[in-house]
Design a protein around this nucleic acid. Sequence first.
DNA 1: TCTTTTTACTTGCATTTTGCAAGCATTTAG
DNA 2: CTAAATGCTTGCAAAATGCAAGTAAAAAGA
Lengths: 135, 135
Amino acid sequence: MPKETSGKSAQPAKSRLPKPLKNQAGDLLRSPCPLACMLDVCGDRWTLLVIRDLFFGRSRFKDFSASPEGIPTNILTERLNRLIRHGLAEQVPAEDGTQRMGYQLTEKGRALRPVLEAMRDWGLKWEPTTRVEMK
Amino acid sequence: MPKETSGKSAQPAKSRLPKPLKNQAGDLLRSPCPLACMLDVCGDRWTLLVIRDLFFGRSRFKDFSASPEGIPTNILTERLNRLIRHGLAEQVPAEDGTQRMGYQLTEKGRALRPVLEAMRDWGLKWEPTTRVEMK
DNA sequence: TCTTTTTACTTGCATTTTGCAAGCATTTAG
DNA sequence: CTAAATGCTTGCAAAATGCAAGTAAAAAGA
């Protein structure tokens, strides 16, 4: 009988390589740290602002685009697709009767509310030139 | 007498340009939104991981460098300087008797604890491959 | 109905940021 | 005194960002 030479040996190896962990979208994790994983999804200058707008009830491309920070449209497109890929947002028929589509948060996306609130509170307390706009 | 043509007119103009708001470090704000301001300080893949390490009590360049995510050393240098510039961290003499310096969070930096906790909780709940390492 | 405007992107390109590897001066350990 | 560790800096390729312009489909207006 030939010797076992295939990738998987009959006996499980003593020292196993650390299995590469992946997030829900299938991307490799930098580490098992939940914070690092969260940053791989949302860790940039724009993503959480789009999520903020979604929390405000904005749902259309033009709405996000009209926010005062002025996100470039190509970035906006990429971020919306990423939010969908990671299951934080989904596309739904627009509620204004037209046949256009809008975006809305999923439960996973809405679960970020405490994160946004904590960031807002920190900004208001430690960066006194900031304020929440009432519109 | 020549007509007034310089930038500043004698009478203050009725409709004033919106004063450019700045954060504590003197950078222009993208908007008055506290979240947007917070993201201008911490909105990238690495900064909050360094702050996490500082919360873990790590204080030395080599400690941050040794974290499992593997931050590049040039990025680490830039981020540490930025944390200092924005008043989230400060340099202090190392506590190990040597004449090296270490970093530690200021009150402003420690105030980010609720943000990190909320992000950690979100990651643990919605990205099940993540976990907190107990070391 | 025909034209115009709005919406939701896409494309091209210059600039900036990131990531990797190597180098280097100072400090510490042996 | 020598070797290793520390805390960076530098150079460069690759990726992300930002800006402006372009485009196709849908909606609004004449």
